[in-house]
Amino acid sequence: MRQNIENLTTELIRLPRRERLELVRFLLFLDNRSSDSDNDIESAWEKEITDRVRAVDDGTAIGIDYDRAMQKIEKRFIQ
Rank of each mutant, 00 (worst) to 15 (best):
G59L: 12
K47A: 10
F77E: 14
N39M: 08
A61I: 09
E48H: 15
F77D: 08
Y66P: 08
L15H: 02
I5E: 11
E42R: 11
E6C: 07
D67T: 03
R17M: 03
E11I: 03
R52F: 10
N4T: 10
S43V: 03
N32S: 05
R54I: 15
D38R: 15
V56D: 13
E46V: 01
W45K: 11
N4H: 12
I49Q: 08
F29R: 11
D65F: 00
E19V: 00
L28E: 14
A44P: 08
I49T: 15
R17Y: 01
L30I: 00
D57Q: 12
N7H: 10
T9G: 09
L15D: 08
I13N: 05
R20N: 04
R20D: 02
W45E: 12
M1I: 12
R18W: 04
R54P: 12
A44C: 06
N39P: 05
L15V: 00
D51H: 15
D51K: 13
D57N: 14
D38K: 15
K72I: 01
V24Y: 09
A61R: 03
L27F: 12
D40T: 15
I64K: 09
Y66L: 02
R52D: 09
F26S: 13
E11S: 04
F26A: 11
F26M: 11
S35W: 03
R33P: 01
R68D: 04
E46R: 14
Q71K: 01
S43Y: 04
R33Q: 04
V56Q: 14
R17D: 02
G63T: 02
E19T: 02
A55G: 06
R20F: 04
A44M: 03
S34P: 02
D31Y: 05
